[in-house]
């Protein structure tokens, strides 16, 4: 009985300490990454290569998703708004929800699934095949050579992708609302322009996407760098990247939204 009890308590203790351990590892890794950013920024071609694989290759999925999300918002928004006779406000509703929330958040979720998982698998396999160790042997710092460019590419790509998502969404809403349903074109745009603030809405949305890019990028390179050097370890690391990135994006979004938009009106 008492042995069972002790085991139960120590399992709980291990659960807590291992999480804190992991958090400390992330912090130290982030510090190391921060120090090596200066060297990594000196080699822009490496960063561009990763921007191509992470950012540019995600362009199509982000643009198409944005278009569809905007269209769905238009259909659902119109359905409710026309009950109150204010269908012209469709542009405002769609633009605000896209620019403030859906643009940065959905883009970050798509990015986590499309690009970050690949980065984790890539770095994890480098770890498993001892390429990282080989680099270390050749006095090439794997953090500034492999990890930092991939992290920077995520931070750099995210605001552009989020802007493209929101733009595609607004265009999708315009296609459904103005072209198919027949809302007045002028009212759609003028109401949108009157109620979307560049600083409060657009700029804060971009700040959000940069924060999400930092978090998703850091998680993906961390999970890859510390993946267990086995097939199973890489699989686990990839899954963890997607799960933890998604959760952290949604949690950060809540915190940022409360900080940015609470008490505005």
């Amino acid at each position: 009985m008492s042995a069972y009890f002790i085991r139960l308590i120590s399992t709980l203790g291990h659960l807590v300490t291992s999480r804190i351990d992991r958090l400390g590892l992330v912090a130290r890794f982030a510090g190391l990454l921060l120090v090596s950013l200066r060297i990594a920024l000196g080699r822009l071609s490496l960063i561009f290569r990763e921007v191509y694989f992470s950012g540019v290759r995600s362009l199509s999925i982000v643009a198409v998703s944005g278009l569809f999300v905007g269209m769905v918002l238009a259909v659902q928004g119109y359905e409710v708004l026309q009950r109150y006779g204010s269908a012209e406000s469709l542009g405002v509703i769609v633009a605000l929800s896209l620019v403030r929330e859906l643009g940065p958040v959905v883009t970050a979720l798509l990015f986590a699934g499309r690009a970050s998982s690949a980065v984790t698998a890539e770095i994890g396999l480098m770890r498993a095949t001892e390429q990282l160790a080989a680099m270390d042997m050749m006095a090439v710092d794997p953090i500034s050579r492999v990890v930092a460019p991939r992290f920077l590419a995520a931070v750099f790509s995210m605001p552009f992708l989020a802007a493209i998502f929101s733009t595609a969404g607004v265009i999708g809403a315009w296609i459904i609302g103005v072209k198919l349903i027949g809302i007045d074109d002028g009212a759609f745009w003028s109401q949108m322009q009157a109620n979307v603030d560049v600083r409060i809405d657009v700029l804060n949305g971009l700040v959000k996407s940069i924060v999400f890019g930092t978090s998703v990028g850091l998680i993906s390179v961390f999970e890859g760098y510390f993946a267990a050097p086995t097939a199973e370890g890489i699989a686990t690391a990839t899954t963890r990247t997607v799960v933890i990135s998604s959760l952290s994006v949604l949690l950060l979004d809540l915190l940022l939204t409360v900080m940015m938009f609470r008490g505005l009106s």
Binding site: I164, T167, Q193, G205
Partner: peptide, 17 residues
């Protein structure tokens, strides 16, 4: 990619906002 992204940002600033 950057050009399209900047264009999208300009669209949000001028046409949406």
């Amino acid at each position: 990619f950057v050009a399209i992204g900047l264009l999208a940002m300009a669209f949000m600033a001028l046409k949406v906002g």
